[in-house]
């Protein structure tokens, strides 16, 4: 019997156990189904629709048309179909949300683990840097970054990622500190394990569930941040996103025109996706942290 096959069998059964628990959580399951549907729709949109519909020069529908049989959610100030815009906007929101989260959680976890593991002046330096980013008004920093750097999706991702990592870093640091205080770390050191061994074999596996939960919650706030920045007109002008739709709607006076169909769909889109991510995250948190499982 080989060791790695035992390990893998146990990991598979652990994953199955997590899934069983998750399935029992109705909120999480609904969130997951909604997310799955949104992702599938976002992936299928180039196959099901014609991108030409987004080109202002090639549409001939009436401007500011209310919902009708032809345009289910009406048209915008240039005569583009709002349903089509919202649908395409899903892609940008998801991509930016996920990419910014990966960046933010990556930086945060790295700094958190290193600060807790090494201690001393290294920790002090890393924590001061974290504090600096924590007290910086993140929206202002993001705005500054998006003005300095060329406008585009990458800049938005960078702006969100760079400003949202400190909370992850502090969370991961706290968790790492509690793990590092446990005697099995001492045992690993006494066995001859170095920094890489202690972090890789003991600290990271114990911290990862927390990071994972944190990721789903960060995605939600990153999507909101993307909408905010686009709403303020800092997004990629060549792409439609939910934030940029809201921006256009406001600038073009959708409110005074009573064009609710231009404002509601992107707003609801943000709400639905964010809620789905949050409920998934909460469910996962309950599954992975047995202390929260108490009464159900």
């Amino acid at each position: 019997m080989s060791g790695s096959s035992i390990v893998w069998r146990r990991r598979r059964s652990a994953a199955a156990g997590v899934w069983r628990e998750f399935r029992g959580n109705r909120g999480g399951l609904v969130g997951l189904v909604v997310l799955g549907a949104v992702v599938v729709l976002a992936l299928l949109v180039p196959l099901l629709t014609d991108e030409a519909g987004l080109d202002v020069t090639r549409v001939d529908a009436p401007l500011w048309a209310p919902p009708s049989a032809e345009h289910w959610l009406g048209t915008d100030n240039t005569g583009r179909d709002v349903l089509l815009l919202t649908w395409w906007g899903t892609r940008v929101s998801l991509v930016v949300g996920l990419a910014a989260t990966v960046l933010s959680v990556g930086i945060g976890s790295l700094i958190g683990v290193l600060a807790a593991h090494f201690g001393g002046w290294a920790s002090a330096t890393l924590l001061r840097v974290t504090d600096f980013f924590l007290v910086l008004p993140s929206l202002v920093l993001a705005i500054a970054l998006s003005t300095v750097l060329p406008r585009g999706l990458g800049t938005i991702v960078l702006a969100i990622g760079v400003t949202s990592w400190p909370s992850t870093a502090l969370l991961v640091r706290a968790q790492t500190l509690t793990i590092e205080g446990r005697p099995f770390i001492e045992r690993a050191r006494a066995l001859g394990g170095g920094h890489r061994h202690v972090i890789g074999r003991h600290v990271l596996p114990a911290v990862l569930p927390l990071v994972f939960v944190n990721t789903t919650l960060t995605v939600a706030s990153a999507i909101v941040a993307e909408s905010t920045l686009s709403f303020l007109g800092l997004g990629d002008p060549t792409r439609v996103s939910w934030g940029s739709m809201l921006h256009t709607a406001t600038v073009q006076g959708a409110v005074s025109k009573g064009a609710w169909w231009f404002l509601l769909p992107p707003g609801l889109g943000v709400v639905v996706v964010v809620l789905a991510f949050t409920s998934c995250g909460r469910a996962l948190e309950t599954v992975l942290d047995p202390r929260l499982r108490g009464e159900r």
């Binding site: 060791g3 146990r10 005697p183 099995f184 045992r187 690993a188 006494a190 001859g192 394990g193 596996p205």
Partner: peptide, 27 residues
């Protein structure tokens, strides 16, 4: 080699017996 006081906390709860014993060998 070191043997600690409380074996419950001296073993990583996520590692199987096999992994715990093989840890030193792998290091």
């Amino acid at each position: 080699q070191l043997v600690l006081q409380d074996p419950t906390s001296a073993l990583n709860p996520r590692h199987s017996v096999y992994e715990a014993v093989a840890e030193g060998l792998r290091i």
